[in-house]
Amino acid sequence: MKAWDVTTDGPDQTAALGTLVGEYCVPGMVLLLNGELGAGKTCFAQGVARGVGVSASTPVTSPSYTLLNVHQGRMPLYHFDLYRLSIVDDLADIGYDEFAESDGLTLVEWADRMLDGMDASLSITIKYDAEFRRKFSFAAFDLHGRELLGKLESFWCKGSENPPVSP
């Protein structure tokens, strides 16, 4: 498992980090996104969507109630949210596997409610500190995930003095 941590300062940087991740994603990847309420999951997911090429005029809203929102970029983006799911059977009921095994990018908020690294390329856990800066902990579980993390690490570190706001 390859791991990498980074801290962002403000929603713009969180979205920028998401955009970079989205740009480096390849079809078929599954990203698990974890963090408390208000940690910045949807903000990061909005960045990922832009990075995947979802048009800026398409609002990328929280799927907490809808459970799944589908967006079209250079590949389909399946944006799940497991916040309201209670048992693993619910995952099958909403057809999760069919999407996760497809050629799109599957991004799952509140993933730790029922998924783990076995099911994914990459997991991203967001925590905030006393000043509400967001610390992102990335872990890669397959080849695509490790490649993505390698690129992300070198790109983001290069500009670490002034991390890119809109790469």
Binding site: P59, T61, S62
Partner: peptide, 18 residues
């Protein structure tokens, strides 16, 4: 017009959880 992130009812339920 429409929400660009959370829906109003979702904000209510999540704040209640907080």
């Amino acid at each position: 017009g429409r929400t660009l992130d959370d829906a109003a009812g979702e904000a209510y339920d999540k704040v209640a959880k907080l």
